[in-house]
Design a protein around this nucleic acid. Structure first.
Length: 485
RNA sequence: GCCCUUGUAGCUCAACUGGCAGAGCAGCGGACUCUUAAUCCGAAGGUUCCAGGUUCGAUUCCUGGCGGGGGCACCA
């Protein structure tokens, strides 16, 4: 018999034995449970050797066992942490003590116990009673190395979560960040709305979509790449401040910064411009940073953040002034003179070259939260022209940890100019640019009804969580990241 | 899509130049009433990712496939 089969058989045999002894291995509920962190909080500051009469009910997974015959210590883990419990043959009775020790690591149990502190100073519960909550039929990952195999961690996230406390903590932090973002927007009068994920026409970003089929209507549909256009129609409709927090889908490659489905928070504020949006964004991100629990790290994000212009940031790091080289040939030659092998200019358009300079020389240096302001109009089909600078738009991108985390602009609300921008995109599409925007006549007509001056922001939630938790790959902040199947 | 790299026990890892595939944890049997990577004794546990090839002999070398990781490209 193979070892694996052996291990499973041993657990099944214990399952049978429980039933034979009249113990229900899968009961229906176990009420009145306290998180172990609450038990810890209730007894903070007790000295080693202290006894109490306080009883607590906790529930979790049996994570370790240190038996010493008629006495044993066991570790119980729940979402909030780990707590040691002590089983004694004299207190619990020899039969129950033995039965508790016969449970497998990984079994889910509930414990009623009395709090005390061991001679070594560890807060523990002396077991007065215990209940099997669910028998575990498969062995746990290694108890001290945890689960390190990267593939298993992503494919079988449940094992990663139950074996690795840092993983659990990271996803708890993610949930708190998302809640903080919602709270900040709700408190400022933003209305959370839901717009279609499944769309007859995609738009609002430069990206390739996923395509699917709606059988009932015999129609091609797209998974949204952005919520931008629908949210601005809400602004046209007079909702004034709206946001949506949900998944976007882009049919692009995988990388430490990219997952094909990712969480985006877009919010739109009437009567504001991109500078207001920057101020709101840094307040909102700082509020989110404060809930992560790393006070020193949060100070990093305290407003105001650094502000540079895009052109200034590139000039500072490369000596190339894109405002002087406002045509493809001239910029290409400047890059050539700069002598970098990192950018191959052939076949790249002017805006693409600007983007290359940004991502090669500027983005990796932006560890401190920083706004880069004023992007070329060619890169920004939905942003309003800059009120003073020719050829630029009122747009910024925010960076932290060497990564773009947000993108915003004063929204273009002149319908005629929007129509021209779409036409320019259509020309790029027919020239073979698969990421160009399809023409959206319904959206243009919405603008013709009149959209107030509006600031719009998109925050990449996955990347925000990366930046706030110091995580290096997006796969560590997405519970079930995309993998080849 | 391309390049580099990787796959050994349930988990974490060894195995020299091609020569009987090993350890810790977990599991199993036993001892132990303050341990916390508990300790001690004992017996087990393998399709070395898959399919071919070279060789007297392949975990090791070669070819192909599958999966993972890193990089490039694309993107946020």
């Amino acid at each position: 018999m193979s070892d694996a089969t052996d291990l499973l058989a041993a657990r099944r045999a214990k399952l049978d034995r429980l039933r034979a002894d009249g113990v229900e291995p899968f009961p229906h509920a176990f009420r009145g449970v306290e998180p172990v962190a609450a038990v810890r909080a209730a007894h903070e500051g007790l000295e080693a050797g202290a006894e109490t009469e306080a009883t607590h009910r906790v529930a979790g997974r049996l994570a370790a066992r240190r038996g010493q015959g008629k006495m044993a210590f066991l570790d119980l883990v729940d979402r909030s942490g780990r707590l040691q419990v002590q089983s004694r043959a004299d207190a619990l009775g020899a039969d129950l003590h033995t039965r508790l020790l016969e449970l497998d690591l990984g079994d889910l149990i509930g414990v009623d116990g009395t709090a005390f502190v061991t001679r070594r100073g560890e807060l523990s519960l002396r077991v007065d009673a215990f209940t099997v909550l669910a028998k575990s039929l498969r062995p746990l990952p290694d108890k001290h190395h945890g689960l390190t195999d990267v593939e298993t961690r992503y494919r079988r996230r449940e094992l990663d979560l139950l074996a690795n406390e840092e993983t659990r903590a990271r996803f708890v932090a993610r949930a708190k960040i998302v809640a903080a973002v919602r709270r900040a927007l709700d408190d400022d009068g933003f209305l959370e709305v839901e717009t279609p994920v499944l769309q007859p026409l995609y738009g609002g970003a430069l990206a390739r979509p996923f395509t699917t089929r709606f059988n009932a209507l015999d129609q091609t549909m797209y998974l949204r790449i952005a919520t931008e256009l629908y949210l601005k129609r809400c602004i046209v409709g007079g909702l004034e401040r709206v946001y949506e927090l949900g998944k976007d889908f882009r049919n692009e490659g995988l990388s430490p910064k990219h997952n094909p489905e990712f969480t985006m928070c877009e919010f739109y504020e009437a009567h504001a411009d991109y500078r207001d949006a920057a101020a709101r964004t840094e307040r909102l991100v700082y509020a989110a940073a404060l809930v992560v629990g790393d006070a020193a790290g949060a100070q990093h994000f305290q407003p105001p953040w650094k502000r540079e212009t895009l052109a200034g940031a590139i000039a500072l790091r490369t000596g190339i002034d894109i405002r002087e080289h406002c045509e493809r040939e001239s910029l290409s030659a400047a890059i050539e003179r700069h002598g970098t092998a990192k950018i191959r200019a052939e076949g790249r358009s002017w805006p693409q070259l600007v983007d290359d300079l940004l991502s090669t020389f500027v983005e990796p240096t932006l560890h401190e939260p920083t706004f880069l302001l004023d992007y070329p109009v060619e890169l920004s089909p939905f942003a309003k022209r800059h009120r003073t600078a020719e050829g630029l738009t009122e747009r910024w991108e925010a960076f932290a940890g060497g990564m773009e985390i947000a993108n915003a602009f004063s929204e273009l609300n002149d319908p005629d100019e929007q129509r021209e921008r779409f036409e320019a995109q259509a020309r790029q599409a027919s020239a073979g640019d698969e990421e160009a925007q399809p023409y959206d006549e319904v959206f243009v007509q919405a603008l013709e009804h009149g959209m107030p001056p509006t600031a719009g922001v998109g925050i990449g939630i996955d990347r925000l969580v990366m930046a706030l938790t110091g995580t290096r790959t997006i796969r560590d902040v997405i519970l079930f990241p995309a993998l080849r199947d």
